[in-house]
């Protein structure tokens, strides 16, 4: 008859003996194995915006709204363009009327509450346009806070929303430091840019990239060393937005300025 002390002793010994050889085995992730075996580089979608090329025409916003069925007149948009005007006395003005859907038709700056500010051309030190869209963060806070897992990151890095599962609590909207999320006016669920996932997964370009007449918007695969966009990101000096939040955004900007919010 084995007593309690013996039993416990043997159990500990048994576990220790079994654990040692077991530690030699690595738990294999089938997806990882497949990726390693296939020999092809994986996919990680990234975006590159050349702010020098953007003229603020708003074709990208129009194309996006049509492509992704965001009601045309609703004051929400998956992508938008911001205009920055820095005057000689150091003031910074910024606006994005209707997300620049119709471009910037007037030189007056939209100050909100129905007010507009006129700035004389001779007072302007510098001015430029900055297109914005979802950063498809490597560490997305929106995915972290979703209480039901309705928003998730695809293996290729794009953050998606499941309209059938989203409860519409708005926590993801609050968690995004870039303000890219909103409630879809028709589906009443969280909505955001997904790099036109339905297009890029079929080998097409996102609607905004295709619509941009100046090539200011480019999409690429950072894991492919031969990808022209990946090459630019690797070799040129690119900036990202709000890196202090630790979200690791994957939309890179050429010619970004310190005034950009």
């Amino acid at each position: 008859m084995i007593n309690r002390r013996e039993f416990l002793k043997n159990t500990v010994k048994g576990i220790a003996c079994a654990a040692l050889p077991l530690a030699a085995f690595e738990i294999i992730d089938p997806k990882k194995l497949f990726a390693d075996k296939s020999g092809k580089p994986g996919v990680r979608w990234v975006f590159l915006i050349d702010t020098y090329k953007c003229v603020g025409c708003g074709f990208c916003v129009k194309a996006c709204k049509n492509e992704n069925e965001i009601p045309y007149d609703a004051n929400v948009t998956r992508t938008w363009v911001e205009r920055y005007v820095v005057t000689k006395d150091g003031q910074v003005f910024a606006d994005s009327p209707k997300g620049a859907r119709d471009g910037f038709a007037t030189p007056k700056i939209d100050m909100g509450l129905g007010k507009y500010q006129e700035i004389k051309n001779e007072d302007i030190k510098k001015a430029y346009f900055v297109p914005k869209l979802c950063n498809q963060c490597e560490n997305p806070p929106c995915v972290q806070v979703c209480p039901v897992g309705a928003t998730y990151q695809a293996p290729d890095g794009v953050v998606l929303v499941d309209r059938k599962w989203c409860i519409g609590c708005g926590y993801c909207i609050m968690a995004c430091p870039y303000g890219v999320r909103f409630f879809h006016p028709v589906y009443k669920t969280a909505e955001k840019c997904n790099f036109c996932y339905h297009r890029i997964t079929k080998g097409m370009k996102p609607a905004c990239v295709q619509a941009c007449p100046f090539g200011a918007r480019l999409i690429g695969n950072i894991k492919d060393p031969d990808d022209p966009v990946a090459k630019i990101i690797m070799t040129e000096r690119v900036g990202i937005l709000k890196e202090e939040y630790g979200t690791k955004p994957q939309v890179f900007y050429l010619g970004i300025d310190k005034e950009v919010r």
Partner: peptide
């Protein structure tokens, strides 16, 4: 009501 520069969404 929005005042000054607020993101569109």
């Amino acid at each position: 009501l929005k005042e000054l520069f607020v993101y569109p969404n």
